[in-house]
Design a protein around this nucleic acid. Structure first.
Lengths: 218, 218
DNA sequence: AACTATTTTTAGACTTGCCTAAAAATTAAA
DNA sequence: TTTAATTTTTAGGCAAGTCTAAAAATAGTT
């Protein structure tokens, strides 16, 4: 059984593990977890002793299969609980993160299995992030963002890459929610801001905003 | 914000706080929490500093209003989550304790409020224990147990005083579940074991079993 | 290739919650 | 009411997870 803290470290390492074999640096982890690099070094040694990560001094850290498996299971729980909070308890998509951050550490395989069933085996969480299946398989979105669409092209919003409350509230206020169909009317050369149509409405959004919206081309 | 551990101490103190003003002894708390009296003394000092308990050396400990309020809110969460697990996720009444023990420490007032609504404001948990309302009001069962019923009397099972898996499984196996109507056929003078009717069936149960069943007289 | 800047690790220390062993206070008994 | 038994507290220590400051390693620059 791993502690709350260990699970958060594994999740952070997973988040910054890219396909290339490069280890995740202690500074990156420290930044993600709001702690200090020296604390990260300590914890990594402990995780290494437990064979959850592979660690070579000054070379960063990578997850073992077991470490990855734990990280993914925590992510699975986080996302399932988010679905529960939004679908069953009527929370808004910008309100669920902190609560799910706690719920993801509840230990009970049976609970997760039953929750998944209760929620009808959802494939995506309220932000469009894919929910790993019970075997730890996790498929990623193709990474096309609204900012990649050319003038005249249409798409559907399928996810967000940034989860801050202010961003999510903003998106909701202009009806840029999951499933919304949009069309790119114009792109300003200077700052890459866009004019887009959402249903009958037209809005202008910055590049920063469009870069963080994952779309499927239509 | 209080830690997981602090909340468990408050819950334990609440459990053994009786109406009389006597403080709860450190040994009783140590026993309840599976720890040592010396550890309890340490924690009690900390809770006392935080004004959650009143502590006089060698005289035991009592909850302040605030300490009681936190204890009751943890109990409220525990019991609401038990209802969720049984009613929504189809867990058996003997399977929910350990999971609720974790869920009770999730911090979010809004979550509790919405969970309560989602569950239709239940008044009792799956073991018949009353659920405190959101203001911390908690009414106890009148403490009549099956062992108090005389020969020929009828009653309804409304709760259990012992939550062990083996006891709960046993009760279920003989259909002694919440809401079951029973009648006392006979009581053996020697060991106070009882013959009782449940629907069309007749079973014999020990005094130890009947002492832990809370009934309402019919 | 040598110096500088940056990153990472080590060393030592703090807090929380726990322990054991011993001392002190309380309670019970003769 | 003095002694004996029990309960409770104190003292000192340990592991987890964190910190700061300093040392070591790596990376970048000229």
């Amino acid at each position: 059984m791993n502690t709350y803290t260990e699970e958060n470290y594994l999740k952070a390492i997973f988040k910054y593990s890219n396909k290339t074999k490069e280890g995740v640096s202690t500074n990156v982890i420290a930044d993600e977890l709001d702690t200090k690099a020296s604390s990260v070094t300590d914890m990594i040694k402990k995780l290494s002793d437990k064979k959850l990560v592979i660690y070579k001094k000054y070379k960063g850290v990578t997850l073992t299969n077991e470490g990855r498996s734990i990280a993914v299971s925590v992510i699975r729980k986080h996302r399932l609980w988010e679905v529960f909070l939004v679908e069953k308890l009527d929370f808004k998509w910008d309100e669920v993160h902190d609560i799910a951050e706690q719920l993801e550490h509840i230990h009970s395989e049976e609970l997760v299995k039953r929750l998944d069933t209760f929620l009808d085996n959802p494939k995506y969480d309220p932000h469009g992030d894919p929910i790993p299946d019970e075997y730890g398989n996790l498929q990623h979105h193709k990474d096309i963002t609204l900012s990649d669409l050319a003038i005249g092209k249409k798409g559907v919003i399928v996810g967000v890459k940034e989860h801050s409350t202010s961003y999510l509230k903003y998106l909701e206020s202009i009806n840029l929610v999951l499933g919304a169909e949009i069309k790119v009317n114009n792109i300003v050369d200077f700052d890459h801001s866009m004019s887009i149509s959402i249903g009958k409405n037209t809005v202008n959004i910055s590049n920063q905003a469009s870069k963080n919206l994952i779309v499927k081309k239509l």
